[in-house]
Design a protein around this nucleic acid. Structure first.
Lengths: 336, 336
DNA sequence: CTGTTAGCGCATTCAT
DNA sequence: ATGAATGCGCTAACAG
């Protein structure tokens, strides 16, 4: 196998021109004569020639691809984001490489490796917990942080605080006064800003913040189910809950229903993300929509702009969120 | 930026040896003298040298990465599979490139492109609907089909027929005699084998196969909700349903509950895949487990073996499935 | 408009 | 055990 792929020399010979002319005809057709262009195209068709990207990249001093570094590839949350990235990378002529910061032994080392190895022309980073000293590595390629953020990096993210405030306001407007929150893991930028938004809006609404009504989670469904156990054990519990992720909200709803309680009859819930299953839950989940495909697209666009401008800095972008009202919120049984 | 990454020449100069020696010291340390090895390592540390993969790959006539070609990157189904692939590729020194057959204009062209362009040393194909003529392209790299299959290709897939039979048998053992099926899209290998398994086991159990109890879906939750509408409109309907995907089962359950009916009280359901949310639904979804991470791992292992053996053929693998009993199946209200 | 030439950075003969 | 030389396939000066 891999016997003999035609090279640019083969095409040149058959077309009766020099290899340089073939290269020009292919990458910048307007500078060659029409007749030679045809000859080259004919020879290309005849040989089935396709450029060798490795050689081209070596010559052009580029890698031809960008790499998305995610904390955990198995997390379905990233699927749509990858689709968005791919949708802008492919037409722009870049490949999309995927890597995981969890697989290897040391996540910081992996970042440093990808930054230094020249494997990629740029990097999209989805892990906010990495050590940013690697970013001062000289000659590193541009990086944009996505969803999360890391100090000197341009980022594309969603307005997490505003989303949290929207959620709390919606609950308050439905009449709830006893509102709790299930957080993501710590330390984590998303967790912290959503919690901050929760607190800010609770105060703005003049509602009481009780530590006992803040439940620690880690974004997973299992942790949502655990929060349900904690919530059900409380004698004095909130009538509504804002979850830092839809997954936790789904886990909570499942566990609460399993115990014979009702959503939103016994407790109202608002999630965050708008994962697909939310609309199909019963009750359908009220949530804060986060446009994941768009996050991916914008991150890729910003990164390409930086690569082409040959700059390590660039604009950041905060993408708006919106409340999706469905059926998991209802007025509390009695004003509390 | 990208000012001056050290090259092998720089290292050679500092270490006081030739570039060839540096190359050897790095890729085959046992052939150089201990003292020169130390000198080289010292120079590497001093310069922060990292090999240029593009140059190495050009010289070695390889791409250094494999590409996963999926029908739709946004589909979260692939997330765990990618994690499995990445977990074996990374230690083996291959990068994972991602591409989508839906984004571009013509999926068959994209396959042909990736096969001919030399962008990857091998390919994992998740789309069974492509035209296999591209596979006769001379000099193409090895390809393994995953989940789906395509004629001359080795494949890694799950025993779909056995899974369907397991599901039907479980329903029959619970006492159901009126069993329906919600299919995936056509044409599609998964849809067809699961349907075949459904039919085979229905016959084996001596149960009646009614066309009106076979509902067309497309694996999505929306199509499951649509199937629910169809099912609810029927006067004479099955008491249990086997779904070709968990997503459809989840969509169905949501729609049926929304209409005030109960699962498994009014209808029992079994899904296929074991997606994460299944365990957190209420009722928790009984399903056929498909070990996705493992599918990815095996596909990558088989592919690497083919690449290293320089062969286009290799073994296929069928991975077993198992029934996960949860709470969405109960005996029918009255024997049917 | 086109050909000649010179590397990109590395691994690998072939000598020594 | 090591060095010198070569070329992977391509693009980009530089001439003409």
């Amino acid at each position: 196998m891999r016997e003999k792929t035609a090279t640019i020399q083969d095409v040149a010979r058959i077309a009766g021109v020099s290899n340089a002319t073939v290269s020009r005809a292919l990458s910048n057709p307007s500078v060659v004569a029409e007749s030679t262009l045809q000859a080259v195209l004919g020879a290309v068709a005849e040989t089935g020639y396709q450029v060798n990207h490795t050689a081209r990249n070596l010559r052009r001093q580029r890698a031809g691809s960008i790499i998305a570094l995610v904390p955990n590839l198995a997390n379905p949350f990233f699927a749509q984001i990858m689709a968005g990235i791919s949708a802008v990378l492919t037409p722009a002529g870049y490949g999309l490489l995927l890597a995981d910061t969890q697989t290897g032994p040391d996540a910081d080392d992996r970042l440093a490796y990808y930054l230094g190895s020249g494997t990629a022309d740029g990097l999209i980073l989805f892990d906010g917990q990495l050590d940013n000293t690697a970013l001062s590595l000289p000659g590193r390629p541009p990086v944009v942080a996505a969803c999360e953020w890391l100090d000197p990096l341009p980022s594309v993210r969603v307005d997490n605080e505003a989303g949290a405030r929207l959620a709390v306001r919606h609950l308050a407007e439905a009449g709830h006064r006893r509102i709790g929150h299930v957080t993501g893991p710590f330390p984590n930028g998303l967790t912290e800003t959503r919690l901050a938004g929760f607190r800010a809006e609770m105060q703005a609404q003049g509602l009481e913040l009780r530590d006992a009504w803040i439940y620690g989670g880690d974004f997973t469904m299992d942790s949502g189910a655990l929060a349900a156990q904690a919530w059900m054990r409380q004698a004095d519990r909130p009538s509504a809950l804002f979850f830092a992720s839809d997954e936790m909200a789904a886990g909570f709803i499942g566990a609460v229903q399993h115990a014979g309680l009702s959503v939103p009859g016994d407790v109202s819930v608002v999630g965050f993300d708008n994962i697909e299953v939310g609309a199909h839950l019963s009750p359908a989940l009220t949530t804060i929509r986060q446009p994941r495909m768009r996050i991916g697209e914008r991150a890729a666009e910003l990164l390409i702009a930086m690569i082409e401008a040959r700059r390590l800095d660039g604009p950041s972008e905060v993408i708006g969120v919106e409340l999706i009202e469905r059926a998991s919120v209802a007025p509390p049984k009695k004003a509390g």
